[in-house]
């Protein structure tokens, strides 16, 4: 049985690669919009606390809308293909990014902020030089979280013509082709794991940069060795 999966993979590797690239493109395009939006909203609610509850609530609600329904709702306005999928994915990515930005910024020790104020930093300088650097590992953890969600949800985008590895899954269901479904699913999972691990390493580097005590993963250790 495993043999048939390997055979399928070897026979179709060019198509698989094509779909994998489409999938990554979809996720990256989403992140390009979702990151600045989520981080700005997180900064906004960190400064304007009264808005924090409603913004976080809104982002939470967006996540509960079934993806297929959301794609369907957006198609009449944005047509088929990438646009409705990217808009939907941006919405899904908001909660982890906004939440972690907010927690990261508001979790900075009060003494450091007070000291920053005392040495004559403006509000903007305190944000740039103290709060954001300290919060960056936490924000990265949110981005990691969002990326893993996006890679999974993006498969459904194939239903409205966005391409990606979801294409193989839907076609596989339609043709009752188990190999097609399983191989595409495994590739999606591997992709999520790779992004998760890669972003974890970036997160740890940011923590090291901040002088935090961290239990390094093997990947981070290996890269640290190569660099130094």
């Amino acid at each position: 049985m495993i043999g048939s999966y390997i055979e399928f993979t070897l026979d179709n590797w060019q198509d698989l690669l094509q779909l994998l690239i489409e999938h990554i493109e979809l996720v990256v395009q989403t992140l390009i919009i979702a990151l600045p939006l989520g981080i700005s909203l997180g900064i906004f609610i960190a400064y304007y606390q009264p808005a924090s509850l409603s913004v976080l609530w809104g982002a939470g609600v967006a996540m509960t809308i079934p993806s297929l329904a959301l794609f369907g709702l957006l198609v009449p306005f944005l047509g088929i293909g990438n646009p409705p999928v990217i808009v939907a994915l941006v919405l899904y990515a908001q909660l982890p990014i906004i939440r972690n930005t907010y927690i990261g910024l508001t979790g900075v020790e009060k003494d450091m902020i007070e000291a920053g104020e005392g040495v004559g930093m403006t509000r903007w300088q305190r944000l740039r030089q103290i709060q954001i650097p300290v919060a960056l590992p936490v924000i990265t953890a949110g981005v990691r979280n969002a990326t893993v969600i996006l890679i999974g949800v993006a498969t459904v985008g194939a239903y409205v013509g966005a391409g990606g590895l979801g294409d193989y899954i839907f076609t596989g269901i339609y043709q009752a082709n188990t190999e097609m479904i399983v191989v595409a699913t495994v590739v999606v999972s591997l992709l999520a794991l790779v992004f998760d691990y890669g972003l974890k390493i970036i997160e740890q580097f940011l923590q090291l940069q901040n002088g935090e005590d961290v239990a390094l993963t093997r990947g981070t250790k290996a890269i640290t060795k190569v660099i130094t």
Binding site: E109, D111, M112, E114, A115, G116, E117, G118, V119, G120, Q129, I130, P133, V134, Q209, N210, G211, E212
Partner: peptide, 18 residues
Amino acid sequence: ELRRDIGYVIQEIGLFNH
């Protein structure tokens, strides 16, 4: 300007840990 011309030490020290 005033704050940058005046040194300030607080009890909690408030060093920038990062």
